[in-house]
Design a protein around this nucleic acid. Structure first.
Length: 263
DNA sequence: AAACTTAGCAACCGCCTGGTC
DNA sequence: AGACCAGGCGGTTGCTAAGTT
């Protein structure tokens, strides 16, 4: 038995992408959007594995990527998020607009690890080198089990329900753990109507958004995050789930699921 | 100038998860 | 219930440029 390979390896290119391949992939996704990665290579005329196309698009070709060096603020945010989430690079990336999980992972391994070691901090535990891990590590693990990102509304609902089984107030637990480990990092989740979303961002982020004009093409108001407009998603969610409240905004204005669910 | 080492990062691999039938 | 599939994630590899001897 076993799983069939995602592609026929004998007839696929490997290694660095050429300019022509990039152009084909960009042109195809512009015309058809992101969809079935398995069938995309053939449809786009690429001799590549679907996974390879997805990686190339997400990590390099996506138009909303921020290129260039990490700022000091981003460094510190990554460190704090890593202390809470561990090696959950995709979750960390979800809170750094324009950065990818791969990019952050590489940056962590090449820069931040060294930076922490030079400060005498163990990058794995975020505690002084040589000190036993203690209870805070368990707390970090517990925090990592709280899910922030889900791919669909259905998953969000399922995950919130799962969370509710553990705690009647999941965000309070999260806030508690965050505060305990990083008292100066505001990761408190909030419920707010879409119209007031900018108030939840904090001024600097709102200014950045305005400067970059990252508005949704559909409603022309909500923030267009790396995947979709939160405002439109909120509207869609409430349509589908009746009185369910599925969307919230974290301190960076990025996608924050699983905040509240009323059945 | 050449040989060697190191750092940075794009890309790959294998595993896991969730959805569908 | 379980087999299969697609997408996603984290760890690792390998190439290349920069730095050092």
């Amino acid at each position: 038995m076993g799983r069939s390979p995602c592609c026929e390896k004998a007839h696929t290119n490997k290694g660095a992408w050429t300019k022509e391949e990039d152009e084909k992939l960009i042109a195809y996704i512009r015309a058809h959007g992101e969809g079935c990665w398995r069938s995309l290579p053939k449809a786009a005329g690429l001799l590549r594995c679907g996974k390879s196309c997805r990686l190339r698009w997400i990590n390099y070709l996506r138009p909303d990527l921020k290129r260039g060096n990490f700022t000091e603020e981003e460094d510190e945010l990554i460190i704090k998020l890593h202390s809470l989430l561990g090696n959950k690079w995709s979750l960390i990336a979800g809170r750094l607009p324009g950065r990818t999980d791969n990019e952050i992972k590489n940056y962590w391994n090449t820069h931040i690890r060294r930076k922490l070691l030079s400060r005498g901090i163990d990058p794995a535990t975020h505690r002084p080198l040589g000190e036993p891990e203690g209870h805070l590590v368990q707390e970090a693990n517990a925090t990592a089990n709280i899910c922030f990102a889900a791919n669909s509304k259905e998953q969000q609902v399922a995950k919130v329900k799962k969370l509710e089984n553990h705690s009647r107030n999941g965000s309070s637990l999260y806030g508690f753990l965050c505060k305990k480990r990083c008292p100066d990092l505001n990761l408190e989740l909030r419920i707010s109507p879409p119209s007031s979303q900018y108030q939840a961002y904090g001024q600097s982020t709102a200014d950045d958004i305005a400067a970059e004009k990252k508005h949704c093409f559909d409603c022309n108001m909500g923030l267009k995050s790396s995947r979709e407009c939160l405002r439109c998603r909120a509207a869609e969610s409430s349509k589908e789930h009746g009185s369910s409240t599925m969307v919230g905004y974290d301190f960076l204005g990025l996608k924050t699921e699983a905040l509240e669910y009323r059945s």
